[in-house]
Computed example of a mutant assay.
Amino acid sequence: MPHLPPLARPQGAGQPRLALAVLVLAAAWLGLWGAWRSFVPTPANARERLQQQAQRIDALEQRVATLARSDQISRQANAGLQATLADRDEEIAGLRADVAFYERFVGATAQRHGLAVHELHLQPQQDPQLWHFVATLTQNINRDTVNSGHLQLALEVTDGRTMRRLDWPVLRQQAGAPGVAYSFKYFQQVEGDVVLPRGARPVRVIARLLPEGSVPLEQSFTWAAAAQPRGGG
């Protein structure tokens, strides 16, 4: 039997298979895309809806900002109102204290008191050695008589070991310094300044009244009480 040569593979025989595979893949991709379109439809006005949502978000953010600002303004107004009410309460309390003070000395049922220093306050100034004082003088015994005279202050101070007294001329740094003049029927506030020597530690303040035609009077106050800020407890 004659030997036959092997059959030669026709040229281009694999191309139909490749084309078929491509077609199958394309058909599968189209099927998947169609299924996705069927289950997740895209609305025709998607862009318009996105714009509407963005506008709504902007409007809500603007409303939140407006409400926050309104709340801040309300809080500030409320704080201002509370401060005003506190000021009014303090003013009313001061007026009531003044009325009680006046009734104590000029009222029909007021108890009779002779010349005295009702209150004494000292306040430090920028210079730590300089102090400003305000004294309230009262009397209601001689209601038709004007009381005149002078007020002087003195201090009892310590250096940690001994006590000594600093009289008015020392506190005024002027030899023979006159006191602060007063003249009133019922009450009067007088004020002035004193200078404390360096290193002096005040313990007591002495108010010395020098009424015209009468003997001097002295009243003492602790430095802690006299130098306490007004309104302090």
Rank of each mutant, 00 (worst) to 15 (best):
D71T: 11
V157K: 01
G34N: 11
I57C: 09
G94S: 07
R204S: 03
P16F: 15
H3W: 10
Q139V: 04
Q52H: 10
Q51F: 04
V117F: 01
G233M: 02
Q173K: 12
D89V: 02
W33C: 06
A177L: 09
H121R: 00
R165I: 11
Q62F: 07
Q228H: 00
G192A: 10
W168V: 04
A226D: 00
G31I: 05
E191K: 13
P124R: 00
L60E: 07
P197T: 09
A13P: 07
L155C: 01
L137N: 05
V40H: 07
R37I: 07
L122C: 01
L30N: 11
G12N: 14
Q82L: 04
L7P: 12
V205M: 00
F101P: 01
L171H: 03
A200W: 00
F221C: 01
Q174D: 06
A207Q: 05
V195K: 01
A8N: 06
L115Q: 10
A21Q: 13
N78K: 06
D193L: 05
V40Y: 15
L95H: 08
A83R: 06
A19S: 06
L18S: 15
R69Q: 12
R104H: 12
L25D: 07
T162N: 02
N142E: 13
Y186D: 14
V180W: 05
T109C: 10
Q111S: 14
T162A: 13
P169I: 03
Q11D: 10
P169V: 07
F221R: 00
G179F: 10
Q125C: 03
Q72L: 06
G231P: 01
F184L: 13
V195G: 00
Q173A: 09
R63I: 05
Q76W: 04
V146C: 07
A108M: 08
R37P: 04
F133Q: 00
Q55L: 10
D71I: 08
S38C: 03
A154S: 12
W168D: 07
V146G: 04
V24H: 11
R49C: 04
A44I: 02
D87F: 07
Q82E: 06
L32M: 09
Q139W: 07
G107Q: 11
A175V: 14
Q62W: 02
G114M: 09
V190E: 06
H132V: 01
A26Y: 05
P197Q: 03
L32F: 11
A100C: 14
S70G: 04
A181W: 13
Q174S: 12
L166K: 01
Q62I: 04
R47P: 02
R172W: 03
G213S: 11
A154T: 00
E218K: 05
V215W: 12
G31S: 13
D98M: 07
T136V: 11
L209E: 07
I92R: 14
V24T: 05
P124I: 01
H132I: 02
A108V: 08
A19E: 14
V190Q: 09
Y186I: 15
E156S: 00
Y182R: 09
D87C: 08
R75N: 08
T222P: 01
D167N: 13
R88F: 13
R37Y: 12
V203N: 14
Q55V: 15
Q72H: 12
S214K: 15
A181I: 05
A54N: 11
L32Q: 15
A26M: 09
S148A: 15
A154H: 00
L67N: 14
R75L: 09
T66W: 15
A177E: 05
R56G: 08
R161D: 04
Q152K: 15
V203R: 05
A175S: 10
E218T: 15
A19P: 01
